[in-house]
Nucleic acid binder design. Structure first.
Lengths: 219, 219
DNA sequence: CATGTAATTATACAAGCGAATAATTACGGG
DNA sequence: CCCGTAATTATTCGCTTGTATAATTACATG
């Protein structure tokens, strides 16, 4: 009667860690960081709270792993957009910009997750390293795409342009994620193409992905 | 011996509310949202925890008030930069951009505070209204400054330019606040001026504030 | 100087937190 | 088929949390 111990299956370490991390990220996305308690995370992952401490030395270490996973996922989205050898440099850059300014990159839940970890950057060295590495990786990819346009080969100018383009994209990402209802579909992507184009002195619209939603002319 | 009740002074309601709000924001800035407990806030404000409930119906309401205060403070910083009638339109815009990309606007603590409240935007209608109103107010001010340049009077184009310039500024603000050591003094301001200028087709550098730190030429 | 009242403190409570430890059970290697 | 061991659950602990309520005290008003 009383002692019906819960049945379970032994999953691999990798699967369990991933399940716990995803559960934590889900909870942060839905209800903020304070909702991601040890008990809630375990429940969402389909295990009991004790198991968390079996795979992570502390809740903080789970948080670190979750932040790393979040950054990796974000990087992977825009990474997948480039590298097609059949594309011109302009096409690759335009695709990169558009991908960064659409779902699933632009997403209120992703912003909530990101913001939920940001305060740790100040106090946790490991987390700050992940954050810095992610930023630099993104900016460097952008810088390489800009360099391929061969409009300039002044390294300082190239770097400044990469920082500026990165900032436009980040800013538009931020606003689209924080105010999802304020922008029509692909409006952010079009503004991003125009702004990055203006900064670099290139018209990127002819090289944008075919499925880019054009501005509706309300005539 | 035992019952030495703590002495106190009666402050006005306004002063106490402000002290509690500032204490809460300080704690969030220093150690993240989870550090801003009722007890810690009261302690920092020099009162006992019960007083919080005397001025705020719940901790959530204090949080709402704190977010409003934070947004007002941020608005006030960049607001103070414009409105000087002795300045040309270009000077006002340049000053606005530079002010937004320097301390105290760019500040890791401010970013931490902002991020600490962002997750509430999704679930709290009042908070979302404040956030939307703040964004729109900032963007509209920018749009008015751009309109004064008289480069275009197409409303849709004006709006898109304002969104784009807002995004560059926000993105640079974000990166400067999240990675304070990655940028030389006023580097963000210079990149901001260059980018906003490129988007609008104006060279803003001749109109920048006199104290803008010029790029050091390492020749 | 007395008095009422609102600001402030003090105390208590139930719930939830992260962490530690002990008891069980699934499952692969003999 | 059994057995060891590691994965998983169960239980408990000490603390902290937000909130509620009662007791006090500062101060304005007369």
């Amino acid at each position: 009667m009383s002692g019906e111990r819960r049945k379970f299956r032994r999953e691999g370490e990798a699967a369990r860690r991933e399940a716990l991390i995803s559960a934590a990220l889900d909870l942060v996305a839905e209800s903020g960081p304070q909702a991601a308690t040890v008990r809630a995370i375990a429940d969402r992952a389909g295990v009991t709270p004790g198991l968390i401490r079996h795979y992570f030395a502390s809740k903080g270490e789970l948080a670190r792993a979750a932040f790393r996973t979040l950054m990796d996922r974000l990087n992977a989205i825009s990474d997948a957009a480039i590298g097609d050898p059949g594309m011109t440099a302009e096409q690759q850059l335009a695709t990169f910009v558009v991908t960064s300014l659409r779902p699933p990159s632009v997403d209120p839940e992703v912003l909530t997750q990101w913001a939920g970890f940001i305060h740790m950057i100040r106090s946790d060295d490991a987390l700050r390293s992940v954050h810095e590495a992610t930023y630099v990786a993104y900016r460097d990819r952008l810088e390489r795409l800009i360099a391929d346009l061969a409009r300039t080969n002044d390294p300082a100018r190239l770097r400044a342009q990469a920082i500026a383009c990165n900032a436009v994209i980040d800013g538009l990402w931020l606003e689209g994620s924080a105010l999802p209802s304020a922008f029509a579909p692909d409006a952010l992507a079009r503004i991003g193409l125009a702004s990055v184009g203006a900064i670099l002195g290139v018209d990127l619209f002819p090289h944008a992905p075919d499925d880019l939603i054009q501005e509706v002319d309300p005539t």
